[in-house]
Simulated scan of single mutants.
Amino acid sequence: MQQQKEPIISLSGVVKSYGSGEATTYALRGVDLEIKQGEFVAIMGPSGSGKSTAMNIIGCLDNFSSGEYTFGGVDVGELSLNQKTLLRRNYIGFVFQGFNLLSKTTAIENVELPLLYRGFPAHERSELAMKALRSVGLEHVSHHTPGQLSGGQQQRVAIARAIVTDPFILLADEPTGNLDTVKGKEIMDLLSAFNKEKGLTIVMVTHENEMAAYASRIIRFRDGKIDNSLHVEKN
């Protein structure tokens, strides 16, 4: 899989439905979406609009019912379950609202986990994990457990874990949802820096307009469809 000028993410007529016949319900109703390499996209919409379903499909955490989804030119719909797991593990980083850190494991050990799953040797895992922690300003707490860290620090560790494998794309699901405004802005400044300075492609689900304003494009979902797409002008 190689980097290219074509969209890294392409959804065409993607439908996600549950049930059958008259009991069929639709989470997505024919979504068309392209995300190019280096973009910072915010996905917004009311509860039940389909934004989280779209995020889960992009992250290969959920299957779609019909349509086409390509990732880096690869037809995801044609991949086996194991191939989707490998795609997710090797090319996608995840940041969640709840941090999802192992409570009895140190910060550096949490960051090492994706490298462990990919079979990196111990010394290389440690070096790369420390580099990732340094990039989020937390090398000094590398041996602290999550319980010894603030919420903002825990989310920074989660970001370090997400970027330690140098993913093609970072998916962030309400990354500031459990943080106060000040800490939330710190996290958004960090994500914005990764996007601008390293060219990291970011797709973020958020309900906060203030956080969405950091993105270069805002996509709004309503009733399982894209309501509109707005480019945010930067000074």
Rank of each mutant, 00 (worst) to 15 (best):
Q4T: 15
I8T: 04
S12Q: 13
V15I: 13
V15P: 00
Y18R: 10
S20E: 13
T24S: 03
T24R: 05
Y26M: 00
L28T: 12
G30K: 14
V31L: 14
V31F: 13
Q37G: 12
G38S: 10
M44F: 15
S47N: 06
G48Y: 02
T53E: 13
M55R: 03
M55V: 13
G59L: 10
C60G: 14
N63I: 15
F64G: 05
T70Y: 00
G72V: 05
V74G: 01
E78S: 14
L79A: 13
S80I: 07
K84A: 11
K84I: 11
T85V: 08
L86C: 02
L87A: 05
L87V: 07
R88W: 14
R89V: 02
N90K: 14
N90M: 07
Y91F: 05
F96M: 05
F96H: 05
Q97F: 03
Q97N: 08
N100C: 09
L102F: 09
S103H: 04
S103Y: 08
K104D: 11
A107H: 09
A107E: 09
I108S: 06
N110E: 07
N110F: 06
V111L: 14
L115K: 01
L116W: 01
R118G: 07
G119W: 04
G119R: 03
F120W: 09
A132K: 05
A132M: 03
R134Y: 03
V136P: 11
L138Y: 08
L138T: 08
E139P: 05
V141F: 07
H143A: 10
T145W: 01
P146G: 12
G147Q: 12
Q148R: 06
L149P: 09
Q154N: 05
I159N: 08
I159P: 10
A162G: 09
D166G: 03
D166E: 15
P167K: 06
I169R: 04
D173I: 14
D173V: 14
E174N: 06
P175V: 11
T176A: 04
N178W: 00
N178V: 01
L179M: 04
D180G: 07
D180Q: 08
T181L: 06
T181D: 08
K183F: 01
K185L: 00
K185E: 03
I187W: 06
M188L: 14
A193E: 05
F194H: 10
F194C: 11
K196N: 01
E197H: 07
E197T: 10
K198E: 08
L200Y: 10
T201V: 09
I202P: 00
V203Q: 09
V203E: 12
M204A: 09
V205S: 13
H207D: 06
R217Q: 11
R217W: 07
R220L: 04
F221N: 01
G224S: 15
K225I: 07
S229W: 00
V232E: 04
V232P: 02
E233N: 02
E233F: 02
E233S: 03
N235C: 00
N235F: 01
N235K: 02
